[in-house]
Design a protein around this nucleic acid. Structure first.
Lengths: 140, 140
DNA sequence: TTGCGTGCAAAGGTTTTGCATGGCA
DNA sequence: TGCCATGCAAAACCTTTGCACGCAA
């Protein structure tokens, strides 16, 4: 049985805000702050509930940066299907790169065949250091 | 001025337990469960306090596997570098599998060399379906 | 004896949930 | 009108902290 989904003012507001902050990693608090600065109001519960939905549909990535224990969220452009490629998240600067690469797909097939585990690429995030941050680390 | 450090029963118990579970990611709850099964008791506060010390000395690695907000800890043998393995998290039943596999190292090297991104394997989680849940899905 | 370590309970901060109300289709 | 979504407050959750007592050296 199909579950109906309603469009609401709150969902529109949240989605717009996420799209306007595409390249930033936002905590729930950050988002509530942004929204309150815009003089629009969404309850914390609604925000978390909708973020959960967006994460499960793959429109938003959720991750936890090492330092703080807070969850961060980032909107992912669904123009190109992000469900079929991987993501590289820099743990220093927070930049999210999209990685399309045959080798990765080979690995997925390997894991499914030989390890009996069907990976959902859209949900996987590789954490590490991007080129720039790696260089900065070495200079320290 | 030097701060004195005392050896105690609790510290010995915790360190032994961590060494006996070298290749596993343990949450605080996991550890308390293991200890209670061994019929030894350490308070939660003491556990967290000592883990903090071990993390700061580098004997224990702390990280948060994304999406579960729990901190994981792992004893690190000072001799060898931390084993490079990935994790398979079943999005249905929540089981976490440890995946040690040569192909993984190839992928890490490939991503570092050709995509200029240094992956930290300890923090990467592959989300997907385990064998059992995959079978259950197909039967539905 | 000194003062670090411990256990308990309470507090802290983030996220989730129960319930009555609001509002989309 | 049916029933999903929302807001509020409370609960759940993991982790930290204050305080008095215990215990290593």
């Amino acid at each position: 049985m199909e579950v109906k989904v309603y469009n609401t003012r709150q969902k529109t507001i949240i989605l717009e805000m996420l799209k306007n902050n595409k390249n930033k990693h936002l905590t729930a608090d950050d988002m509530l702050f942004i929204l309150s600065a815009q003089k629009v109001s969404v309850s914390r519960a609604t925000l978390y509930r909708y973020l959960d939905v967006l994460v499960s549909t793959g429109d938003v990535k959720k991750y936890i940066l090492s330092e703080s224990d807070k969850a961060c969220y980032q909107y992912v452009d669904s123009g190109k299907s992000c469900k079929e490629h991987f993501h590289l998240m820099c743990i220093d600067c927070g930049t999210l790169q999209h990685l399309e690469c045959i080798h990765i797909n080979e690995i997925i097939n390997h894991v499914e065949k030989d390890h009996k585990f069907k990976v959902d690429p859209g949900r996987v995030v590789f954490y590490g250091l991007c080129e720039e941050c790696m260089r900065n680390k070495q200079e320290e």
